[in-house]
Nucleic acid binder design. Structure first.
Length: 534
RNA sequence: GGUGCUAUCGUCUAGUGGCCUAGGACAACGGCCUCUCACGCCGUAAACCCCGGUUCGAGUCCGGGUAGCACUACCA
């Protein structure tokens, strides 16, 4: 096959882009890049009632944040040249417009073609009449069996149809599905799927009310006109794939019909059903890439970006939710994913969304950042705690000491706040366990001992140990003192730690005193001595 | 209800007829390290949905159950 691969991501601007949609976009992107093909973004806004302002911008910003490039269509951009369109939601490419609401004339043409060839017909049944039919007949379906009893151009005299159209009566155009035919759909992930046409209904392809086609028609026409070679979409579309096959045939496009791949769905972490926005609210994790302010209903939804996720971590996490290579590799760069991704290694079964694993991925990627990079990500949190003017080099040094214990940059504050502020309170549990009767005595002596250390030696490093690590000079002063008085290393050091940190936790004590400095260290011990009652 | 898809540890998954006494990762638990809490390292527990069939041999192939999911709109 010498044909260039062309795939599309075709979301509806009905709200924030769901994380499942992000994965669909990602798989499309990986597939396109791997085959040297093109990735298109098309906006499927054929339902004027569900349009949400800002949704398009949101989709584009999300893809940019994640690094999923768009070669053609709405919001085209790439990592090297940046934005390919003038505005955020601009269009780029030869096959536009890429917003379905701007393609009305095109759809008119193809609706007419279907009408003329007898593959579609006008239907005048009102919503009320349809509702009535559904009430009267159990499992009512508008199809070969029932359409003879309805108000349409197949049952009405031609003159009346003409008259109704001329009167401007509202109508829809329905696809005429032939009875009892086994339709074969080849799916790249699932193999051959066979569905009998009897279970398909005469789908509405066009509604005169808003002069717009429905998804099915617009989708097939656009995929054809935009020369899409592979349709990679969610499994929820599998049941309508036979309809799409029939549509390609009705247009005479069966030879260029794209290949289909239906992706498994993302399921709730607990319970039954697919992952929804409510699950995120209920269980406390984002289901959207970016925070979203819905102008239509006034709601705000949390996003991965604002929660402190690195885009690479989200990509890696999502890639492995439904796809896995042979072998045990878990960490994949985007380049590795492009190289190794394949549709035939996509799982068939739905994947339960495991937020804990997402956190682990973020932890992994955070550790790979330099202290400086991570410090930069931490600065906003510091600013929120009134430490906006901290020196970045100091912050980086602090970050280096505690970063291995965090999953998100924001957590740096709870791990390292004592580097910036003296403890205001002392942790009950730590005091109970580590603050001994003679702690005040030990600490008073320790103050004197530390005071005797010249300032210039305070942060000095000590001897190199057997394992190659370097000790601290303070260690060489304090340890012999503890041992000679037989005070117990744990006793003294833990009490000391509580004075500095406010609890029995944190990095190595000399790493802390190193950053606090002599004066602050001694002040904190003095302060603790007056505030902690034995 | 109908139709379709799916089925390996709690979760994501490896496994394509003998290499499976079923591997890895997350989570859980235990130990080591250690002045503390973490990290890290080491280890433990944990699964082939059920029933038949094919085969010398089945997690792997076939059939039937069961269960889960999706679809069943003038939404996408």
């Amino acid at each position: 096959m010498s044909q260039t691969v062309r795939v599309r991501f075709a979301p509806s601007p009905t709200g924030a882009l769901h994380i499942g949609g992000v994965r669909t976009a990602l798989y499309n992107y990986l597939f396109a890049r791997q085959h040297g093909g093109k990735m298109l973004l098309r906006i499927e806004d054929t339902d004027s009632n569900r349009f949400v302002p800002g949704a398009e911008e949101y989709i584009i910003e999300s893809l940019q944040w994640l690094g999923i490039e768009i070669d053609e269509g709405i919001g085209a951009w790439n990592k090297t040249s940046g934005r390919l369109t003038k505005e955020l939601c601009g269009q780029y490419g030869e096959n536009g417009p890429y917003r379905q609401s701007e393609r009305r004339e095109i759809y008119h043409r193809y609706i007419k073609q279907l009408l003329d060839s007898g593959n579609a017909y006008y239907a005048f049944d009102t919503p009320q009449e349809l509702e009535q039919a559904r009430q009267q007949t159990p499992n009512f379906q508008y199809d070969a069996r029932t359409r003879t009893t309805m108000q349409n151009s197949l049952t009405l005299p031609a003159e009346e149809v003409q008259a109704r159209l001329e009167r401007g009566e509202q109508y829809v155009v329905r696809f005429k599905v032939g009875p009892n035919e086994d339709i074969h759909v080849h799916d790249l992930i699932r193999g051959e799927v066979i569905i009998n046409s009897n279970i398909l209904d005469d789908k509405v392809l066009y509604k005169s009310a808003d002069d717009l086609p429905t998804y099915h028609l617009a989708n097939i026409v656009d995929d054809h006109l935009m020369a899409i070679t592979h349709v990679i979409r969610g499994e929820e579309w599998l049941p309508s794939a036979p309809l799409h096959v029939l549509l390609y045939r009705a247009f005479g496009w069966q030879d260029t019909q794209p290949a289909f791949a239906h992706l498994p769905l993302l399921l709730k972490p607990d319970g039954n059903g697919k992952l929804s926005k409510r699950d995120g609210d209920r269980l406390g994790f984002p289901v959207f890439p970016l925070e979203f302010h819905n102008e239509k209903d006034g709601t705000v939804s949390s996003g991965y970006r604002e929660s402190g996720y690195l885009p690479e971590a989200v990509i890696n996490f999502l890639a492995l939710l439904g796809w896995h290579n042979t072998g045990d590799q878990e960490i994949y760069s985007i380049a590795e994913l492009i190289e190794q991704f394949s549709l035939d290694r996509v799982s068939k079964a739905g994947a339960r969304f495991d937020y804990e694993k997402g956190k682990w991925f973020n932890h992994q990627y955070l550790q790979r950042l330099s202290n400086q990079q991570l410090a930069t990500l931490f600065m906003p949190t510091l600013a929120a705690h009134n430490h906006a003017s901290e020196d970045i080099d100091k912050v980086a040094q602090v970050v280096g000491l505690v970063k291995d214990r965090i999953n998100f940059p924001q957590e740096l504050w709870e791990q390292a706040s004592f580097f910036f502020e003296a403890p205001a309170t002392y942790d009950e549990k730590s005091l109970k366990k580590r603050w001994k009767e003679d702690s005040p005595k030990h600490l008073s002596e320790l103050i004197e001992l530390l005071q005797s250390v010249p300032c210039e030696r305070w942060t000095e490093r000590g001897e190199t140990k057997e394992d190659g690590t370097q000790g601290w000079y303070l260690d060489e002063v304090v340890m012999p003192w503890i041992n000679s008085h037989d005070y117990g290393v744990g006793n003294v050091m833990n009490a000391f730690r509580i004075c500095l940190v406010g609890a029995a936790r944190g990095p190595h004590i000399w790493a802390i005193t190193d950053i606090l400095g002599k004066e602050e260290t001694l002040n904190r011990v003095r302060k603790a001595l007056t505030e902690i009652k034995s």
